[in-house]
Design a protein around this nucleic acid. Sequence first.
DNA 1: CCGGAATGGGTCACCGATGACCCATATTGA
DNA 2: TCAATATGGGTCATCGGTGACCCATTCCGG
Lengths: 192, 192
Amino acid sequence: MTFPEETGVRGRTRRAILNAAASVLSRRRDATLADIAAGADVGRSTLQRYFPDREELVSAVIEDCLRLLDESLKAAHIDEGPPLDALRRLVAAMLDVGDQVLFLYGDPRISEAITARGGPDPAAEEIGRLIRRGQAQGALDPDVSSDWIEHVLWAHVSAGCMAVSRGKLPRHGAAAWVLRTLENGIGTRTAP
Amino acid sequence: MTFPEETGVRGRTRRAILNAAASVLSRRRDATLADIAAGADVGRSTLQRYFPDREELVSAVIEDCLRLLDESLKAAHIDEGPPLDALRRLVAAMLDVGDQVLFLYGDPRISEAITARGGPDPAAEEIGRLIRRGQAQGALDPDVSSDWIEHVLWAHVSAGCMAVSRGKLPRHGAAAWVLRTLENGIGTRTAP
DNA sequence: CCGGAATGGGTCACCGATGACCCATATTGA
DNA sequence: TCAATATGGGTCATCGGTGACCCATTCCGG
C-alpha cells in the first residue's frame, strides 16, 4: 500500500513537486514545467527525473489531489453526527486543501478526466453520501437533486479557496462565510 | 460610438470569431488559434486578419464579453422593481450569455486582467448596486459583505452555465435551480 | 455585370516548450 | 569518512504554435 517513492528524500522532493504543481497549475494551467520546478524549489532535471513527461506529471497530480482530499475528508468523519455539523467539517476539510480543490475544480477538462478515468473517486462518494443522508434526514433540501447540491458545494468552496488565495478572505474565517451563504443562501433568513 | 468593423460582412465575421473564441477558450484556455478559427468556421488567415496576434484577440474577447454581459443586464433592468425579482432577472440574463460568463469567470487571470485594466466595468457596477440595494431593503443578508455575495453569485451562475454546457441541466430551467439554491441555500427552508 | 473587397489555403521562418542526454557537485546514510 | 545516490545546470534536437507573407477564388455591392 505504501509507495516505495514515498520514503525519505525522494518522498519529500516528490511531495514538494506535487504540491507545487497543484498550486502553480491551479493558477495557470498552461504553466511551464520550468515554472513548476521553480515553484517546487527543484531543478528542471529533477522534475523530469520524477515525471518523464508532462502528461505523467498531470495525472500524478490529479491522483495526489484526490488522495489528499480524501484523506482530509476521512479525518473530518463526515459520515458521523448530524448532517449539518458534518457539512461544516466537510467545508473546513476542503478549505484545508485549497490548492488541490482549486486545481481539481478549476479546469473543466480535469473534472472530465476524473469521471472518465475508470477508477473510483472516494471523495466524491463520501460527499454524495453525506448529501443524500442530509436530504433523508431533512437537513438538506430534498427537492433539489443531490447532483446539483454537489455542484453548488464545489462552486462555493472553490470561491472560498479563490478568495483566500487572493487575500480577499482571511485564511481562518473563510469557512464561516462559505457556510453561511451555503446553508442559508444570500437571502435573509426569515426564521431561526 | 458605433465601430466601423461592426457593419455588414466584416461585422458578421468578427462576431462569429468573438463568439467562437469565447466558447472555445472557456473550455480550453490554451486552445490553438486554429481551433478557434475552426470553431468560428473561418480560415486561420481570416482570424489573423481580424486579430493580428493572440493577445489582441484575447483582450478583444474580454471587452466583447463584458459588453455582451452588460447589454444583457441592461435589458434585464435590474435597477428596477423588488430586489429579489431583479435578482431573478439578473440570473436569467447571465445564463443567457453563458459562454461569456464561463470565459470571464473561468480563468482567474482574466478576472485579474479586468480589474487591473483601468477602464470601468459597467456589469460589475450594476451587479454591485443591486446587491447593496437588496441588502438595504432587507431582501439580501446585510451581515454578509456585498463582495462575498457577488463572489457567490458568480460561482453559482458559473456552475449553472457549466451544467448546461455539459447537458446536466436543461437550457431553460437552469435558472430555477440556480435561484433556488442561491436564495435559500442548500438547507431546508424552515419558513415561507 | 463587373470591380474591388473578403476569404481560405498554402508556405515560410522563428521561437519557446519539451524531452533526452551528460557530468560535476552536494547530500545522504552506512 | 566514504561510497552511493540525488541533485542541478548545462547542451542539444525536435516539434508545434505563431506570425508574416502570397495568390487564387469567392462573394458582395454598385
